[in-house]
Design a protein around this nucleic acid. Structure first.
Length: 826
DNA sequence: AGCACGCCGACT
DNA sequence: GTCGGCGTGCTC
């Protein structure tokens, strides 16, 4: 048998299957999707089996055998192999990158080489100390350790390896082994308790106690836990084990990050009429098993989560599994609690706060069918379920569903594709759907595969949306108020303090960073390797570059003019905090921004404090806008709504509207009535006026008009190609050639035409132009934007255009990066 | 990505 | 005369 293997080398030249012979003793265990170690170019690499056949694509005698099988159960399922192939085509990434994205990081094996003594050396003198060390280390040492200990002998080692006086063997070592726990068992065939006790000395009270306790329990228990529960130290267990009265074995332990938590079980709530109708449509789609996609457009507080929960129950009752994607930031304990409360241990939770070991264990719960529901951020879309019935994507519009590193996939698109494979239903939920999803769902149902729109326009309990007041900050200035708080917001805050209610303040900080400027000459600190200003880090008083990591101390005087008038533009939230303290002495503020949430559980801790009413105000950036639900919050204030509105990004208005709508939904979700105050310098902008009236439809129709005129999604699709090189002139020529190549290929396909041409299929290439960040890590950057509409396989065109630049005679280190459906093109 | 093979400058 | 520089090319 022959296995086709994708080896873990992310290079274009090796991005294809390589054939290997399956050793006889491996045949029974090797499966499609197995992870293996294979000899490749003189070393052993990790790879994935993507096909098992009888026919080789090269001369069979050239085949090498697979060196090792790395897991007892293949980490990939057959459908995921197909999905990875699709991803590598669509997102122009290597196949191995796509495969790697699907499994937990703990399963990324690395080669480990061991060096041993070979034929006795005569003429080739190995340094004696080296020989001795190897001999004393049991004859085998890790190459890494050797290099660390004797870097000066590296040459001699290479020689010896070539001569055979040293030998080496490689194997794949996982980043993380399964955690083993010493566990105490009662023996299979055990003596009755009284007979067993006879064998224990009468004065060994602790041993007797432990033995009795184990007989009473019968179940195995971790040694440590036994010690804890009985107060018997492990030293007293040892003699019992030696006598054969107890057994001690290493047992695989699954780390359950939620093990110590109790979740109150909840039952399905009665649905409102609106919820029932939507649930009915989802159930229909689940019954149909056709891979339908639905857009659940529900205002904040309309009870989407309960619909999700009952739909999942319906799916589980069909014997199928469900995946729930939520944005990382809203994967809070509150959220987890709701799912654990309804489905208990059947829920696996995958989020970035878990250690790689914990994450691996949650993943194994899914793979071993102990869990039927996976809830997690973006990458949870790859949960290894065998029969997916339902995929829910909550807050569908969130940009965090797009991965910004290769493979630059969008979880929503992967979900739709994966659902097709499984005949699963996809539910995209949002109060402010992305224009792409909304347009897809409102298209006349010409094709049966098109997605359907499920509206939920009313809040549960008939609570009204909170009134939103928009304050024109220009008026404030005219009235002589130079504070960052308008009179209205000031009064509203005062009122909350007096009534003992809580407020949320949002500082829209997108596109607005912490930098350092000299007030005398205007000099700003910039990164020496990138065209970007350095970010000031309050805590360490260090200036850092976000892109390359360059760091330098914050200067006391201007390096340009020597002036001491250096202004540190802090996080913004700090300034707001200071001003709050000035205006309202004694006010208790919890500040949430990158500075205060960098520690591991800081985010949850701060929210818990706020929930426990230990503060009057929760002040923060975007992260305070998402999914929070506190009954005593009756005021939401937005300090400056405009900051994200004027970014040179075609989604600026959409992002602003979404943010304002989300944050407005945080107020008055319970008995107490809420109020929202939005401060802005452009109160007439449609993103603000429509957010004020909670009018999504009005926003969309205006925004669609703009997109149509400007030629942006959803009226077309985009591919962004960024090229980089140290030498500007070379980069410039090559990028021109690449753009020409693209145009030529499109011409050949008969699709090269301006988008304004009105043709149903059209593709145009913009650029190359310098990227918004024109230099990064000492490399210049140029970009091309491809806009297209209609059934065009733009990825295929890009891949073909790349060929001459990445194959054949080495193309002197030009870096190409392809972003299909980019979130930001600036 | 590595690693090996291969053809030109500064050293014992 | 050799060691080693990294350009080019291959890995089942």
């Amino acid at each position: 048998m022959i296995a086709k293997v994708i080896v873990d080398v992310p290079s274009r030249q090796t991005d294809r299957p390589f054939d290997y012979e399956v050793p006889y003793e491996m045949q029974e265990w090797l499966e499609l999707g197995s992870r293996v170690g294979v000899p490749f170019g003189g070393r052993v690499l990790q790879g994935f089996v993507i096909d098992l056949t009888e026919s080789a694509s090269v001369d069979r005698t050239r085949l090498k055998p697979i060196a090792e099988l790395l897991d007892p159960v293949p980490p990939l399922l057959p459908d995921m192999i197909e999905l990875s192939r699709w991803m590598s085509d669509k997102y122009c990434c290597s196949w191995t990158q796509a495969l790697q994205a699907m499994i937990p990081a703990a399963l990324k094996g690395k080669e480990e080489r061991q060096i041993g003594l070979g034929e006795p050396d005569e003429e080739y003198g190995l340094p004696a100390e080296l020989k001795e060390w190897i001999a004393n280390s049991g004859g085998l040492v890790k190459l890494d350790a050797l290099i660390a200990k004797y870097p000066q002998h590296l040459k001699a080692v290479k020689h010896a390896l070539a001569k055979g006086t040293l030998t080496q063997q490689s194997s794949i070592k996982d980043r993380l082994a399964v955690r083993k726990v010493l566990t105490v068992f009662l023996p299979e065939s055990r003596l009755p308790l009284e007979h067993a006790l006879e064998q224990v000395p009468a004065r060994a009270a602790k041993q007797r106690e432990a033995l009795q306790w184990m007989y009473g329990r019968e179940e195995p228990i971790a040694l440590q836990e036994l010690a804890q529960q009985t107060g018997v130290s492990s030293a007293s267990i040892k003699p019992l084990v030696e006598k054969g009265l107890l057994e001690l074995r290493e047992v695989e332990k699954e780390r359950d990050p939620y093990a110590h938590r109790q979740f109150t079980r909840t039952s399905p709530l009665p649905l409102t009429e609106g919820q029932r109708e939507v649930f009915g449509r989802i159930a229909e789609a689940l019954d149909a098993r056709q891979g339908r996609t639905m857009l659940l457009h529900g205002v904040t507080g309309s009870g989407k989560t309960e619909v999700y929960l009952q739909s999942i129950q319906y799916c589980l009752d069909q014997g199928r599994q469900a995946i729930v994607l939520v944005p990382e930031i809203s994967l809070t304990p509150q959220m987890v609690e709701r799912f654990k409360g309804r489905f208990g241990d059947a829920v696996a939770v995958l989020h970035s706060r878990l250690s790689s070991g914990e994450r691996f264990d949650e993943w194994r719960k899914i793979r071993s069918k102990k869990a039927q529901v996976a809830i997690g951020a973006r990458s949870a879309i790859f949960a290894p379920f065998e029969q997916i019935g339902l995929i829910i994507i909550d807050e569908e519009h969130e940009s965090s569903y797009k991965q910004e590193e290769s493979p630059k996939y969008h979880a929503r698109d992967v979900a739709v594709r994966r659902a097709k494979q499984h005949g699963a239903a996809v539910v995209l939920g949002s109060a402010t759907p992305s224009l792409e999803s909304f347009a897809a769902a409102s298209r006349p149902a010409a094709n049966p595969g098109a997605s359907a729109l499920l509206p939920m326009p009313y809040r549960v309990g008939g609570r009204p949306m909170p009134p939103v007041e928009v304050v024109d900050m220009r008026e404030e200035l005219r009235a002589g108020n130079r504070s960052m708080f308008s009179r209205q917001l000031h009064a509203a805050l005062q009122e909350r303090l007096e009534r003992g209610e809580q407020s949320v303040l949002l500082l829209n900080r997108r596109g607005y960073s912490t930098f350092v400027m000299c007030r005398s000459c205007g000099h700003t600190a910039a990164c020496p390797h990138c065209d970007i200003s350095l970010t000031f880090h309050q805590k360490s008083r260090v200036l850092r570059c976000h892109y390359c990591g360059h760091a330098e101390g914050a200067p006391a005087e201007c390096p340009e003019c020597g002036s001491e008038h250096i202004r540190y533009f802090g996080t913004g939230t700090q300034r707001v905090e200071e001003e709050l303290a000035k205006l309202f002495p004694g006010i208790r503020v919890i500040r949430m921004d990158v500075d205060t949430t960098s520690e591991k559980h800081a985010h949850e801790k701060l929210l818990k404090q706020f929930g426990d009413r230990q503060a009057d105000v929760l002040l923060g950036t975007q992260m305070v806008a998402k999914g929070l639900d506190f009954p005593y919050v009756t005021l939401v204030g937005v300090i400056a709504a405009d900051t994200s509105l004027h970014l040179p990004d075609f989604r600026a208005a959409e992002k602003t509207f979404q943010l304002l709508t989300q944050v407005a939904g945080r107020a008055g979700r319970h008995e107490l009535e809420g109020e929202v105050v939005i401060q802005t310098y452009t109160p007439e902008h449609y993103a603000i006026t429509t957010a004020q009236t909670h009018d999504y439809a009005a926003f969309v129709s205006e925004e669609l008009r703009h997109r149509s005129v400007m030629g942006y999604p959803p009226y077309c699709r985009l591919v962004l190609v960024t090229m980089s090189h140290e030498q500007l002139p070379l980069l410039s020529t090559v990028s021109e050639r690449f753009a020409a190549e693209l145009r030529e290929l499109a011409e050949h396909e008969g699709v090269l035409a301006p988008l304004g041409s009105g043709l149903p299929r059209a593709l145009e290439v913009l650029g190359p132009v310098a990227s918004p960040i024109a230099r990064m890590k000492d490399r210049y950057r140029f970009q091309c934007v491809i806009k297209y509409r209609g059934s065009i396989d733009a990825s295929a065109i890009v891949r073909r255009a790349l060929q001459p630049f990445t194959e054949g005679p080495q193309q002197k280190g030009i870096g190409f990066s392809v972003d299909v459906d980019p979130q930001v093109i600036l």
